[in-house]
């Protein structure tokens, strides 16, 4: 038998982790159960953070003041996925960068409620600056996935 010039062996790194969310993320997630998208504001620069954050990275201040948004937002950018990625949804799917209300920051979520029958045409159906609103799951657990997706405001 001939000796191969090289061999390959497969291996993996399966490790489990657990993370405490802290007070601000916990409050933000809990509000999703009530179909509410909250934001918090920086006492110094007054920017609104959606999702909420524990601190403002620019002013380096703790964020303790909360605001409730109406949940609607605008699309700042997006991409339509056409190929299958492991552990990711079946294509095509649209990931959007969504600015909720007058937030100084954006959320990442899916854009849905579109006609997916002609995948090639999806990019043309989405406009930068387009207004979107959340579509909520029936059973909510306090997770960004309590929102099924954001759909264009009719």
């Amino acid at each position: 038998m001939e000796t191969p010039s090289f061999m390959s062996k497969q291996y993996n790194m399966h490790l489990d982790f657990s993370l405490a969310l802290g007070a601000s993320f916990t409050k933000w997630m809990q509000a999703l159960k009530e179909k509410k998208i909250l934001g918090n504001t920086c006492p110094k620069c007054k920017r609104v953070f959606v999702p909420a954050k524990p601190f403002c990275e620019i002013c380096f201040e703790e964020l303790k003041d909360w605001v409730e948004t109406d949940g609607t937002g605008v699309v700042e950018s997006f991409t339509v996925t056409y190929q299958k990625f492991r552990n990711c949804p079946e294509p095509p799917y649209v990931v959007g960068i969504i600015r909720i209300g007058n937030a100084g920051t954006c959320m990442t979520h899916w854009i849905g409620g579109l006609d997916y029958k002609h995948p090639d045409e999806i990019p043309e159906k989405i406009k930068i600056g387009m207004k979107v609103e959340p579509v909520w799951k029936e059973e909510r657990v306090g997770d960004p996935l309590d929102i099924l997706y954001f759909k264009p405001v009719a």
Binding site: F78, F85, Y93, M107, P144, L145
Partner: peptide
């Protein structure tokens, strides 16, 4: 892409199926 997805914020962004190509696409779009 599976590993790149683990570089995303674990709770807020990882579930949405984002790898490097998606991040790049946001800029180019």
């Amino acid at each position: 892409q599976q590993v790149l997805n683990t570089a995303s914020p674990p709770i807020f962004e990882k579930p949405f199926g984002i790898g490097a190509v998606h991040m790049g696409a946001f800029y180019l779009t």
